[in-house]
Design a protein around this nucleic acid. Sequence first.
RNA 1: GCCCUCAUCGUCUAGAGGCCUAGGACACGGGCUUUUCACGCCUGUAACUGGGGUUCGAAUCCCCAUGAGGGCACCA
Length: 552
Amino acid sequence: MGSDDIKTRFAPSPTGFLHVGGARTALFNWLFARRHGGKFVLRIEDTDQVRSTTQSAAGILQDMLWLGLNWDEGPVVGGGKNQYFQSMRLAIYQPYLEQLIREDRAYEAFETPQQLAAMRAESEKRKTPFRYRRNMPGRAKKGEGPVVIRLEMPWEEIRFQDNILGEIRVAGVEHDDIVIRKSDGFPTYHFAVVIDDHDMGITHVLRAQEHLMNTPKHLALYAALNWRPPLYAHLPLVFNMDNSKMSKRDKTKAARAALQLYARQRQDPTFAQLAVRCGLPAGVIADFVARKTEDSTLAGKLAEALDVELPEIDVQDFRHSGYLSDALVNFIALIGWSPGQNREFLTRREMIDLFSLENIGKTSGRFDRKKLHWMNGEYIRRSRLQELVAAVESFSQVTDYPIKQADEPTLRVLLAMYQERMATLAEMARNSTFFFCTPRYDQAAVKKYIQTGDGQAILERILELLKPITPWDKELLSPVLERILAMGEKRGAAAQVLRVAVSGGAVSPPLLEMLALLGRDTTLSRIQQALGMFAPVEKTTDSQPWKRDKME
RNA sequence: GCCCUCAUCGUCUAGAGGCCUAGGACACGGGCUUUUCACGCCUGUAACUGGGGUUCGAAUCCCCAUGAGGGCACCA
């Protein structure tokens, strides 16, 4: 087989958003195909009529494109016919089903789900594993229940060569006659993958290790149909840092924890106050906390109202959090794969050139958010301004920060300011709001720098120094700033007073750039405003520290 | 419970019998730089799961134990 015949696929089921784990599987398949000059197919496995949705499918396509994982065959590019959705391929499966029955490799079964559950419970009681087999006693008779079709699995050991794990063997007694057509007439996943992979000419299947035990089933199907199976490679899994499985559940879990903390701290056990604040019925929130609902969109809204961040799980989450797709792809590629030579930063092109099944490891990995965060910051620092402008534009499409309104020249100035002090675009978006809106003053910072000692006096002095500057540009600002830095006993102390007055907090980009962008009017009026708002008052007023509003 | 797989710093990994007193990166600690915060630079702590073999020699090969994970659906 010539290497240009290589064809891989990614076959997500459209039952939610594209998960990072899925994205990694997609990436490895994409890399493998590109490495060998082959084709990469995207196929939507929507044989679960209950859980599949078209919005989900659309979202997955969008995420794939955002990640830069283009497909050679699949929805939209697949020739206009919807032949890459399994639900549209029902007619294709039918003849093979008939063939298997005709050849007596498959047979009908009539148990109801309840009966099957009872049989399993019975086996469990006897502490023997349940296997549905054609010759087993007590099978339901025709007409007794819904009709499914099962494949008669072989009775001998099945062994195969996995391209990552090596030889895998499963004894004959372990096999279970799998359902290949459900009672609703739809093929099961097992049947549809085999037919589709064969039909589409897939040569290599790289999939998560959770599919390892499905492989004998698929192999049996290939054998029954007399087809040559593809080559398999099972990828190591990715978990959370605490070794739990990464799932959407992590988001609802984190949201619930935040809500419980909130209820305790704010003494709002019925969430009445919170309900008002975020415009949701208190009952909905209470149900959510009581685990009656498992809605991650709701979790997101609540987290926003509480100003907490939920762990990112889906590709979209990372996009919302301001991660660059290049960084995410790079990071994900490194879990379970190593290009060697201590290399870490790779473009897609470099990954393609270095990719090989040989340097995929066998051990499962953990998703270290801190490292991704660092790597994203590194990508931002290494980017050119123009690339960052594009990234912010993409980011703004899915988020709603004031930075959205910035025109390109402003954006470039902001980007230059924040490039070295942000790790995600969201950090810049959040921290730069004071450029667009009246700052929310951090009371602790105000107290520490303005309402203290000669803070007021210093601020007045600063105002006087700044007032006469025209034109308001860096050249003229710079020497004045130098004088401000020299004020007071401790060099730089006055800078903090100015910083807080203008930005609202004790942390901001360097004053020179910041003041230049803010402009003369805004700067002066904010100082004046601060002077008025934070006039020295008697100590007694700050007796309600819990009411301090939080900056950020 | 049964079946399958895996096992190097806290984390991602390098290591394909001698190059290993185990390398890199994140995180963490210390220091320098500094108008805040970052960035940057220097530097430190930290690992071959345990036990048996094989071999002149094992992180690397074999076996057992232990641990971790996956699978046991008319879900994919």
